[in-house]
Amino acid sequence: MIDLNRVSRTYSGARPVHALRDVDLSIGAGEYVAIMGPSGSGKSTLMNVMGCLDRPTAGRYLLQGQEVSAMRPPQLADVRNRMVGFVFQTFNLLPRHTAAQNVELPLVYRGMPGAERRRRVREVLERIGLTEWSTHRPSQLSGGQQQRVAIARALVGRPSFLLADEPTGNLDSRSGQEVMVLFEELNRDGTAVVLVTHDERIAAHASRTIRLFDGRIVSDQPNPSPLDAREQLARFTEQAAASGSGGGDGS
């Protein structure tokens, strides 16, 4: 599905920065991949290239067999719209729009008729468990709910893969764990998920871990025993219940 062939991305300037150097990477449909690396390792650049927000300066990028590396901005916009579902650390919801309107946005740019859009939005919000929040604005939602709306927005266009950039970075650990459960379920249903993170515990949920350093892939290993997010969440709930009952002894 994703095929990077000797992809480089160099930022020109007085001292050119080689953010990516000769990266070869293939990710298949339905995979659950974590991309890791310290800051400055090139993982943001790799994410931007994979998400078609940026173009490689050298090499080829094939997405679903389509050569993306040579496309013009309007065509790239179309590819992003149909094939990529972005999830950002800061959610990036439009504050004046309701949850449903935020989710609808990619379909609006696809030019889909209103009735079908609303049906798809309803389906996705139901899948995410936010039906009753559909008319709320982001400011009326918790961080976890906001990120779930953002995931619904990423899913609504039925993309080839979800591209999540530190999706739990702005969430408390419980909401973060809930988001990880959601990713796991989506992946089980066949959606490929690419997580970009520097958090080992988040990366441990993926079945494959790619590590970047200085613009190169330094390791690419399968994870034979990924963390079960649901189990983690259950344990988390237990702990919270235990500490909660302990604290509430006196009353």
């Binding site: 998400g51 927000l53 901005p73 309007p74 916009a77 179309d78 992003r80 719209n81 149909r82 972005f86 990036n92 946005l105 990619p106 740019y109 696809r110 927005r153 266009g157």
Partner: peptide, 8 residues
């Protein structure tokens, strides 16, 4: 808007 597919 651009990320989710808005053309120029």
């Amino acid at each position: 808007r651009k990320a989710v597919g808005a053309k120029p």
